[in-house]
């Protein structure tokens, strides 16, 4: 059995695939085997976009997502698209702006101010990185430092600073409020 499966989903143009690639790179550097797949139809003008990771410390047997342990939903279009792949103990992260749209009875759903935080950082386009930080923080796949190192390896140089800030913000919004 795979150790875990995850999907980051949203709308074309939200940087879903980049978020998937960064996380895959980070996990690869944790000596995990990672199989990545993604939506293939052109989605740069909108439409469902998804990045799937199947992760194992052994060889990945079936490399496509079939039972999600983690699901991130960042856009209305992705709200119910992955329901068939969820299981009882899946952790679902939903952007709080979509909270009324997602019907997630029976799953552990975590509404977080993801796009709101990105807007607060001055760039709605960093929603993907806030989500990546939040997901990694909650799931504990790897350390924040390792995730940031993957950003440096994978993301275009001009995105390094804003992405780093956004990932840190993603960690921050998962901290228990005190």
């Amino acid at each position: 059995m795979p150790d875990f499966e995850l999907r980051i989903s949203g709308s074309g143009g939200q940087g879903i695939l980049l978020a998937g690639r960064i996380l895959a790179d980070a996990l690869g550097h944790e000596s995990l085997n990672v199989a990545q797949s993604q939506s293939y139809e052109p989605t740069s003008r909108g439409g469902l976009s998804r990045a799937d990771l199947v992760v194992s410390d052994a060889e990945v047997d079936y490399p496509l997502a079939s039972d999600l342990d983690y699901l991130v939903i960042l856009d209305d279009i992705a709200a119910t698209a992955s329901n068939d792949l969820l299981k009882q103990n899946s952790l679902v992260l939903v952007d709080s702006l979509l909270s009324e749209l997602c019907e997630m009875d029976g799953y552990e759903v975590c509404y977080l101010p993801i796009s709101e935080s990105a807007r607060g950082l001055g760039d709605i386009r960093s929603t993907n990185m806030v989500a990546l930080g939040a997901l990694t923080s909650l799931a504990g796949f790897c350390s924040q430092d390792n995730l940031l190192a993957a950003v440096a390896r994978v993301a275009p140089a001009k995105l390094l600073d804003p992405a780093t800030r956004a990932i840190r913000q993603g960690y921050a919004i998962t901290e228990p409020q005190s």
Partner: peptide, 10 residues
């Protein structure tokens, strides 16, 4: 198949 063609692995 297409699934393998677009799958990313190490």
């Amino acid at each position: 198949d297409e699934a393998l063609g677009h799958l990313i692995e190490q």
